[in-house]
Design a protein around this nucleic acid. Structure first.
Length: 891
RNA sequence: GGGCGGUUAGCUCAGUUGGCUAGAGCGCCUGCUCGACAAGCAGGAGGUCGUUGGUUCGAGCCCAAUACUGCCCACCA
């Protein structure tokens, strides 16, 4: 405790140790204390498919910043962690693993054995993920960790399914769905990615039954022609009026199909005639329904052709297309070939082209569920941050179609539907029925399919808190406060959580949806395995420390936009940590006695006003106080980046660059009482700064905190500071600002004269009474930080020595005698530049003030400020000009 | 086809309700091993805020148009 920090900042030395200490202290655990206001964040559960990537690091850090901040503010802060079974994604990975390691398919293994392997996978990767969370510093409540397929979540899923079914909101239907031939399962609309691909329109002639020309139709998928059951034309289309009601011949196949009139075909598009394939196209399906057409399927689930394709049976869809087109062309049916861009749907997991396919699946009826979710956003019960994401959310809900929830997979929640083999009765039940409820048969079997992985995710905010049981956690921590997630999963997840929660719990699952962007590589490309441009958060942590990574991720972003991962930014964040480390080391060094014990310190908790504070103390305290207000305000608005940057500036630019330097002279002096004051302020400010920074850089701040005197417990559990309206110290602040301006001016002159920093100089100051008074108040600082031996105040301009360089600050004239180092040319240039600048300012502001519109319409304060400014500039300008004239003569 | 972003210093980006002498980090130039820190200190150069109009006393910020760029959505003869 009473030992100083190590010489160099080495995050590896303490990060793991500190995490363990936090965990041991119980700080992560939310008590469920009814006396306290709860603040809840439920972690978007990472998929157990692999390791955490940079996107998770961003997502988690934002959540951790919020939860640590709220915890410090005294809330009963719960960050509930967990992971997602990720049905399709995991199944694909596990199947891949079995294929490469054992050369077997999942069918070879059978359902039970495959599931065993999947659970093994879960044990391995689930553990890895939580390990990574710890490295990042996630302060989540591990005692409440959940998994989407644990007992409680299973129960919630079943319960939810049964309730929706009983309300008629879940149904089984035969409809066109998105089918992924590679994964062998149906997909929801959200799981299909759209991409424009180069393709062709093939125009084929369907000859008339009676030997006439027939009709020409275009298609981009000729292989579906085997499923054609009609040709549709618009009833208003005069070109085809005569043909409606007659039959045409499906080329080569020879099957007769009717020409029907339906409003669906657009007369402007293609030939105005559309082939109708109800089993392989959603529009055609609707047309088929209207006209009672057969739903003729010609493609198998694995994307090979079935018997309807005749000699092409068994061929892959694309091989078939090629051969079939060649045959049709040879037979003279092709009338035209057109290059065209075809919007194509791809599976979001394996990128295979999705085949629209008629299939019997379970669906959630969306219209009724979507309405309250739309209203919640419109009413403001649900708020998106930044708000533009609300549009995306609303658009999706307004356009929503029924949600296909059954998947032809094994890894996931099995659908709680049961079929009687004797009478065909469908039973949906939370418990397995032993007998058919209708006929009493024992031949009851459960539906083979599992549910969409997002079905369980949709319940996450309340299933994790105990629903469907009425648990104390659910009562206390629900609804949660904020959901933090990337914009890429608004459709998959956010929307579904909201309507599920509104349906089940009767209120939104969280008030705020805090949306962030994606982490991209240095060139702005999406990080991906295939590109090999991913950066592993663990490697970064190993090299720079978790705090640097966290700070880079949280301060380098603007809300909702993507972040480019730049190594140099990471480095600068690490440098910041190092800066803080060394500043703290300086402070502690000055608290230690020779024997290693802590020097006496005034009680930091004591009213600051009771101390004999110097101007610089007051200035620093005011700066910290301002920062507390600003940072807290930023956090309230979810402006984490601004908050973090503010703390950065406070620590580096104000505390390190100025306060520490200003206070050194006192620390090295002999006034013991004053030394105590300086030390007290140093420590007090450092503590506040560490607290403000803690949510962003928890490890280093905790480590430093543990070395400071008069601390209780750990920083993670310390109280967030509250700004004091009264702590402005305006007079001291203005004195210090003048001192800094003068010091900067002296340094500037030194640099231009190339005076060595160690070279002691003398200064002569000419100012009016007030100016002289002000300078005298901070004379010592100017002398020491300006490297001056003495400052002479003169009453008469004639006393200005020869051979000087000069500057004007705030109307105060400053002269530095330099004899041999004198560089009038440099000074002339500097003053000339200053003159031009001032002239510009004077002109600009005078222009404003001479504009009657401005003085009449602008707020009084603004006008007064401008008047004040212009007077100051004019005065300084005059002095600069006067000096320039003198120098001009010397040049 | 519909929608949403972005366009500010060489690079990556801030700039909260219009009042700014337009900022930061990195990079660049000059000088510094002075008792926290070279992962540092001090000083400096560098921008007509994509273009064109408009509103306003005042526009990087608001409105309109336009160019370029990125993304999302879309049942796609």
């Amino acid at each position: 405790m009473d030992k100083n920090l190590a010489k160099t900042y080495d995050p590896k030395e303490f990060e793991n140790r500190i995490y363990e200490a936090w965990e041991k202290s119980g700080a992560f655990h939310a008590e469920g204390d009814l006396e306290k206001t709860p603040y809840t964040i439920v972690m978007p559960p990472p998929n157990i498919t692999g390791q955490l990537h940079m996107g998770h690091a961003l997502d988690h850090t934002l959540q951790d910043v919020l939860i640590r901040w709220k915890r410090m503010q005294g809330f009963d802060a719960l960050w509930l962690p967990g992971s997602d079974h990720a049905s399709i994604a995991t199944e694909v990975k596990v199947a891949d693993k079995i294929r490469t390691e054992e050369g077997k398919t999942k069918e070879d293994l059978g359902r039970d054995e495959f599931l065993k392997r999947a659970w093994e996978w879960k044990e391995t990767y689930g553990g890895k993920i939580t390990e990574q969370c710890r490295k990042l510093g996630d302060s989540c409540d591990w005692e409440r960790e959940r998994f989407t397929m644990d007992e409680g979540c299973n129960k919630a899923v079943t319960e939810f399914f049964v309730r929706l079914y009983e309300k008629g909101l879940i149904y089984k239907g035969n409809r066109i769905i998105n089918w992924c031939p590679s994964c062998g399962t149906s997909l929801s609309d959200a799981e299909v990615e759209h991409e424009d691909k180069n393709g062709k329109y093939y125009y084929f002639r369907y000859p008339a039954e009676n030997g006439g020309e027939g009709i020409v139709v275009a298609t981009s998928r000729p292989e579906t022609m085997f499923g054609d059951v009609a040709i549709a034309v618009n009833p208003a289309d005069e070109r085809y009026t005569d043909l409606v009601g007659t039959n045409v011949i499906l080329p080569i196949v020879g099957r007769l199909i009717p020409v029907i009139a339906d409003p669906y075909p657009d007369m402007e598009k293609g030939t105005g005639a559309v082939k109708i394939t109800p089993a392989h196209d959603p529009n055609d399906f609707e047309v088929g329904k209207r006209h009672n057409l057969e739903e003729l399927c010609c493609i198998n689930p694995d994307a090979t052709m079935n018997a309807e394709a005749g000699k092409y049976e068994g061929m892959d869809r694309y091989a078939c297309r090629k051969a079939w087109v060649a045959d049709l062309t040879a037979a003279g049916f092709l009338t035209k070939l057109e290059d065209v861009v075809i919007p194509t749907g791809e599976c979001y997991r394996c990128k295979d082209v999705v085949e629209p396919r008629l299939s019997e699946q379970w669906f959630v009826k969306m219209e009724e569920l979507a309405k309250p979710a739309i209203e919640a956003a419109m009413k403001g019960d649900l708020v998106h941050v930044p708000e533009r994401f609300e549009k995306i959310y609303l658009h999706w809900l307004e356009e929503i179609r029924d949600w296909c929830i059954s998947r032809q997979l094994w890894w996931g929640h099995r659908i709680p539907a049961y079929y009687c083999d004797d009478c065909g009765e469908i039973m949906v039940s939370a418990t397995t029925p032993l007998l058919c409820t209708k006929c009493g048969s024992t031949k009851v079997r459960q539906d083979e399919d599992v549910l969409d992985t997002w079905f369980s995710s949709a319940l996450w905010p309340f299933s994790t808190l105990g629903w469907p049981e009425k648990t104390p956690d659910l009562a206390h921590f629900y609804p949660t406060n904020v959901l933090v997630t990337g914009y890429d999963i608004i459709f998959f997840w956010v929307v579904r959580m909201v309507f599920s929660a509104l349906e089940i719990m009767g209120e939104v699952p969280y008030k705020y949806v805090y949306v962030h962007g994606l982490v991209r590589d240095g060139e702005g490309r999406k990080m991906s395995k295939s590109l090999g441009n991913g950066i592993d958060p663990l490697e970064v942590i190993d090299q720079f420390g978790a705090d640097a990574l966290r700070f880079m991720l949280t301060t380098g972003i603007s809300p909702g936009s993507d972040l480019r991962f730049k190594m140099d930014r990471l480095e600068s964040c690490r440098n910041f940590a190092n800066k803080l480390w060394n500043a703290s080391r300086f402070v502690i060094m000055n608290l230690l006695d020779e024997d290693g014990s802590m020097k006496a310190l005034a009680d930091s908790e004591k009213e600051i006003s009771e101390l004999a504070l110097k101007d610089e103390d007051k200035w620093m305290l005011a700066k910290v106080n301002d920062a507390v207000a600003e940072v807290t305000g930023n956090m309230d608005n979810f402006d984490l980046a601004l908050a973090g940057q503010k703390v950065y500036e406070l620590i580096w630019n104000e505390y390190c660059d100025w306060y520490i330097e200003l206070v050194k002279q006192r620390l090295y002096g002999n006034d013991e009482a004053d030394k105590t004051v300086a030390r007290t302020v140093l420590v007090k400010c450092l503590k506040d700064m560490l607290t403000l920074l803690h949510p962003f850089m928890p490890f280093i701040t905790e480590e430093i905190y543990s070395h400071l005197p008069q601390t209780e417990g750990m920083l993670i559990s310390a109280a967030w500071p509250i700004a004091d309206e009264k702590r402005k110290f305006e007079e001291s602040t203005s004195t210090m600002e003048l001192a800094m301006d003068i010091i900067r001016c002296i340094r500037n002159i030194r640099a231009e004269a190339e005076a060595a920093p160690t070279k002691k100089l003398r200064a002569v100051i000419f100012a009016d009474e007030l100016g002289t008074q002000k300078i005298k108040a901070c004379e010592n600082h100017i002398r020491i930080l300006g490297g001056l031996t003495e400052i002479d105040f003169i009453k008469d301009k004639t006393e200005v020595p020869e051979e000087v360089m000069s500057g004007v600050v705030d109307g105060i004239e400053l002269y530095i005698p330099l004899d041999d180092l004198l560089d009038y040319k440099a000074e002339f240039q500097r003053l000339e530049k200053e003159k031009i600048r001032l002239e510009g300012e004077v002109e600009r502001i005078s222009g404003k003030l001479n504009n009657p519109g401005f003085t009449a319409k602008a707020p009084e304060q603004v006008v007064a400020l401008e008047r004040e400014k212009v007077e100051k500039y004019k005065d300084t300008l005059n002095k600069v000009v006067e000096r320039l004239e003198i120098i001009a003569k010397k040049l």
